[in-house]
Amino acid sequence: MIGEWWIDILKAFLVGGCFCLIGQLLFDVAKLTPAHTMSILVTAGSILGGFGVYTKLADWAGAGATLPIISFGNMLVIGALEGARNNGFWGIWTGILGGVSAGIAASVFFAFVVALIFKPKT
């Protein structure tokens, strides 16, 4: 199976790696804090999503484009636009969180479970 998939896996590696490289440059060259860096990336994601570019990239690179936080911005825009398509103006507000729901729900749930079990170390 991996024989047929290696090209997809390679694409994911290259695209995912490039996004991380951009993040590292924002850390080390622009000297931004992690919070600034992530805010910039997610905003860039929604702008790219607005042009429809990111979905094409995600079709091409798979997890290489969907795992980085940039995809978070893209999914928010996709949700908002899908809502707008179905319900017009109000659809933006009701549909926006649809795509990112799994990410937020899982992050909050597992964070809570971990907080119940563990204590912070050093």
Partner: peptide, 28 residues
């Protein structure tokens, strides 16, 4: 690994988990 873990969704999950865990001492 720096941005290698921060840029993927792992960074997002870590920021929520670390804050939730850290502030546990001030109550749930």
């Amino acid at each position: 690994v720096g941005a290698g873990l921060a840029v993927p969704i792992t960074g997002f999950a870590n920021s929520i988990t670390s804050s939730t865990l850290e502030f546990k001492s001030e109550g749930y």
